[in-house]
Amino acid sequence: METFVQLIAAGLVTGTIYALIAAGYAVLYTATGFVNFALGAQAMIGGYLTYVFLPELPLIVRVLLAIVVSILVSVASWAFFYRQVAEKDMLSAVIMSFGFSIVMAEFVRIIAGGIPLPAESPFGSGVQQIGILSISNHSMAVLVVGIVLFAALALVFRSRGGMSIRAMFQDKEMAETLGIPTNRVVIGLFALSGVFAAAAGILTGPILSMSPHMGTSLALIAFVGAILGGLGRISTAIIGAIMLGLLETLFAGYVSQDYRTTLVFAVFILVLIVRPAGVFGSKTKVKV
């Protein structure tokens, strides 16, 4: 029982980090049909900015810097690269984001080296005992930050402005005629996804330690999570990613630590074959 509770908590923490990236995917996908694989690399850069590059600056400055850089990368890459390609061929744009994430990873590797670097949690190394569950301050922080960000996301999309954004998802031309500036909204959504990516990177650093290519696998696993729940809606993408975190942690705890990669990607293939729109997705086929 204790192991189970412990694993559930760990799974929720892992899942929340995946969900931050998955939320970024879904925000962009529902609006543009584009999947930005570079979100994982943006998370990685956010982590390096917070923990590795500028240790002399105060923490709050480093965190803000990480978020700002992630936003800038997000928006600029869309405005100057992805958008022009996505208009003609969406798949090329996605492959491009994959290439871009390699560029970022290699850039960081050249500056900081390829050896994984430990990162110290801003929340200290303390551990809290809640009943039979012992949970580190950092893990609690991950859950709290996750809940806050997801709640904020829900508020944004429930607000009047959010409604018009959702109208835009339904019908872009209609939105244009109603006077919703789709281009500016899309830029805003890219900025939003940048915030989520940076948060994921800052939170994951102390758990996994920092390495340049951590973003690539984070991006892929988060995508699997989003697909598992359904990429067509933000809520289902988040739930799917959390589910995947739980599944992965339980599998690692009870079955095999070695084969968790196999599990994750087997889940991916299975979902795509059995339910391409995700476990909670509507039956209408997701168009990519």
Partner: peptide
């Protein structure tokens, strides 16, 4: 395995295939 999917999903499924084989061999 992958042909039921198209485009982006196919690209990622084939990529996933690589990760699985790597994990099994490792």
């Amino acid at each position: 395995v992958t042909l039921r999917t198209t485009d982006l999903y196919l690209a990622l499924t084939t990529l996933a295939f690589g990760y699985i084989v790597e994990n099994l061999v490792r």
